[in-house]
């Protein structure tokens, strides 16, 4: 078994609440078999020995931990705002490090090349300077004042716009992005990436959204986000090394990679190394 280290005592998504059945779902969490099921109508999780694991039901997903979390699962206050549509996008299995999946989510520079004519397009490839910090009071990574031109920023967008972004890493394998809400200026659309680490090189990604969009069909919202993530998957599954390096090694991060660097520094500081490579290849 790989060393789960400090990540053992954190919460991870292990299924969509509305898909649970009494029969349950057998899956993995950090290399260990678990079962996620309904027990008298309430979500429950047990490990391979039958031991009950702690459970939180939040953001449409079931969360559990192999260890003993000393803090509650993070919050997303926008989830409780009236008028937002909460979208459980589903699951996408990706043959990559769970940390790589989060890092890719934080990367803006790939938009024009991977999500061409949707989230980015040439020649609008420049990532303008933005701000990144590790917020000590909440122990989260935040990137703010991010701006990027997008041909179709969201399902609800009509034509290209310069989109404002904020990124937040609130748990080792979870990130939330806030972006310009085309039909409601002044508000943010919220798109979260909840990653279940099956092993160090295999994960299941559960995107979730809280949007102001009264027009689109729910299936269209889901399909739009699934299309984006399927485009990412082909890139993620071919990244080398498979584990996320916490030493830049052969990579040459640039200023556009500030969020990735901050994320890796945060992982390093906390010893969150499940899915990471400590020494450069």
């Amino acid at each position: 078994m790989s060393d789960q280290g400090a990540m053992r005592d954190h919460w991870y998504p292990v299924g969509m609440t509305k898909q649970l059945t009494a029969g349950g779902r057998d899956t993995l969490l950090m290399g260990e078999p678990i079962r996620v099921y309904l027990d008298n109508g309430a979500p429950a999780v047990s490990d391979g020995t039958g031991r009950s694991l702690p459970v939180i039901d939040r953001f449409g997903h079931v969360w559990t931990s192999l260890g003993a979390p000393n803090r509650d699962l993070f919050t997303i206050p926008e989830a409780d705002q009236p008028g937002r549509r909460l979208v459980d996008v589903g699951v996408c299995r990706v043959r990559c490090s769970p940390l790589r999946a989060v890092e890719n989510f934080l990367d803006i520079a790939h938009f024009p090349f991977v999500h061409t004519d949707i989230l980015g397009s040439e020649p609008h490839t420049e990532v303008q300077r933005y701000e990144v910090e590790i917020r000590e009071d909440v122990d989260e990574v935040w990137a703010t004042k991010v701006k990027f031109y997008q041909p179709q920023a969201a399902k609800s967008a009509e034509g290209g716009i310069t989109t404002d972004y904020m990124y937040r890493v609130c748990a080792p394998t979870c990130s939330v992005l806030y972006k310009t809400c085309p039909p409601k200026p002044g508000e943010w659309d919220v798109i979260a990436l909840f990653v279940q680490p099956l092993t160090e090189t295999l994960c299941e990604v559960w995107p979730w959204m809280a949007l102001y969009d009264d027009a689109a069909e729910m299936t269209d919202l889901i399909h739009f986000q699934q299309m984006i993530f399927v485009q990412d998957r082909s890139v993620l599954e071919n990244q080398l090394p498979a584990l996320l390096p916490l030493d830049p090694g052969m990579e040459i991060p640039t200023r556009a990679d500030m969020t990735s660097i901050a994320y890796r520094r945060w992982l390093k500081r906390h010893g969150f190394t499940y899915g990471a490579q400590l020494v450069a290849a």
Binding site: L246, D247, P253, T254, R255, I261, L278, V279, A280
Partner: peptide, 11 residues
């Protein structure tokens, strides 16, 4: 780029 690399540094 040198600043970014050094910010992360060796383990």
């Amino acid at each position: 780029a040198m600043e970014m690399g050094c910010l992360l540094g060796p383990i």
